[in-house]
Design a protein around this nucleic acid. Structure first.
Lengths: 302, 302
DNA sequence: ACCTGAACACCGTTCAAGT
DNA sequence: ACCTGAACACCGTTCAAGT
């Protein structure tokens, strides 16, 4: 007992306070910062403790509030457990994937969230692969694309933002990747492709180039989405943010990227007075991409 | 026995012919097409049978030749098994990942390839995560980038092709994604970033924009790489190619994308007279991307 | 008709025990 | 010093058995 890893000891302590009712559903559990003070541990350890509880479904991060205790509706006398359905399964799976990414999505976990046995899921869904496919389709169907603008540039801009928003709401999708070469994968993803093609209707681009334009934007957004998901995953795994990680490893960074080896990168890191987040990268890249496409469209119609 | 899945029956039959020596190392095993005729099964089944044998390391696809029997050096009197080392482990892991993608890479599989126990690996490598990181670094270090050209456009073009080539040789990297926000991940990946920054030295872009240019190209290539890996994975899993898949599912495609629902996409699919492969998408996208960056550089220096 | 427990064939990794 | 077997805590999925 004495030798258990500190993060487990901390997690147990909080778990006990929840079980005893001292911390009720909706209450905030101590923040990571509070835990570092209270237990004299590093941020990484405190975050890992909370991550453990979140993994168990006991607590949930509430943006702008902190980490709060989850209502234990499953075993209590909550709303009568409705009948299992494909829709409810997909919904539960989406909630898990949104919160914890695709690695956190397991059939057992979905079953637990719906308080059934794992195997009951297989009555409504042939397997995990198909479940992810269904999730993708739902994710692409959440927000309508709206009417197609007359101007191709406005249209492509809107399309790219729509896609980026889907990936932002569903960062797990970066790993799943909505298939655009295999249409059956998702009718809603296909509807997006159709929308983009409609946007380009007025241009004189050939059919192949229209598809290229669509896929080029898609690849770019997908690449950014992967970076975002990886970052978030690393953050959740290690419990340290990118910034913290950077400063923690500055010495190691210097070791491989001393002024001698990678001078430009080193200067860039040392200055660090520019914004480097994925949102601004998206804005930057989209602008250049559209400029490049504009050049093609201009020369095509000339 | 009679009820075993056909692909396992076929695999066993071939396995027996290898064991008996009828098929010696280097010999071609029957092609998938030959198997479909011989056993009266679908292509998917034949491919799955061969995939099973490849999984076991018994056979190996030899490009331009067919599937050939692998020399069983491990148990035979082959070259004396050299001592385990981090380098040999990374090399073996790379071979597996290249052949079968990241899902096929397991610690047990690496150990088997090196004829040791799984746990012996942990003496040289702290875990799978670090192994993949080391693999990424090796992959990025295989081909030198060469001298930095004076012209930024030539430089970026070369950089993008270099990156694309890395991903082509190592399609598994699409899933691992070389981290460019976390430099420690790979010195060789960092060297690439440095190279790109050097390419942009002559331009008047700000430090943030230089990084944006680099990451924009990276995201695009990464997105294409993911598509390529997914396609290959699906091909290996199901044993059917994209074309075959498309024609098999044409009716299903028509169902969701009849002329009424997705008319443009439908027309595109019906015509199909354009090239849609990832290489041409890469060429197209790179051209537009560089045009867009040119527009920015022009206005910046004006 | 619907659900489930036990089991299978896997994972990555820990740990105590071997040589 | 180096390697290993057994075990742990997981996966997705099959299947026979329950209600």
């Amino acid at each position: 007992m004495a030798d258990r890893p500190p993060y487990l000891v901390i997690a147990s302590a909080i778990r006990a306070r929840i079980a005893s009712g001292e911390l009720a559903p909706g209450d905030r559990v101590p923040s990571t910062r509070a835990l570092t003070r209270e237990w004299g541990v590093a941020m990484a350890t405190a975050t890992k403790a909370l991550a453990t509880l979140r993994q168990e479904g006991l607590v949930r991060p509430e943006p702008g509030v902190g980490t709060v205790v989850v209502r234990q509706s499953a075993h209590g006398s909550g709303p009568a457990a409705s009948a299992l359905s494909r829709e409810r399964i997909v919904r539960a799976a989406l909630d898990i994937a949104i919160a914890e990414g695709l690695p956190g999505l397991t059939m057992r976990r979905v079953a637990t969230a719906l308080s059934t046995s794992t195997m009951a899921l297989y009555r409504h869904v042939p397997g995990k692969g198909e479940l992810v496919r269904l999730m993708t389709d739902v994710a692409c169907g959440e927000v309508p694309l709206g009417p197609v603008p007359a101007d191709w540039r406005t249209g492509l801009e809107r399309a790219a933002h729509w896609l980026r928003d889907v990936y932002t709401r569903h960062r797990w999708m970066a790993q799943a990747m909505a298939s655009f070469t295999r249409p059956i994968a998702s009718p809603n993803a296909m509807a997006y492709t159709e929308w983009v093609l409609k946007v380009l209707r007025g241009t004189r681009l050939g059919p192949g180039d229209k598809l290229h334009v669509h896929l080029m934007i898609f690849a770019f957004v997908q690449g950014i989405a992967m970076a975002a998901d990886l970052e978030e995953q690393a953050k959740q795994d290690s419990g340290i943010s990118d910034d913290e990680w950077m400063s923690q490893n500055e010495s190691r960074f210097d070791a491989i990227a001393g002024p001698g080896d990678l001078p430009l990168l080193h200067t860039l890191a040392a200055e660090g007075d520019f914004e480097l987040d994925l949102d601004s990268l998206f804005a930057f890249g989209l602008r250049r991409t559209l400029d490049g496409i504009a050049a093609l469209i201009d020369e095509t119609s000339a």
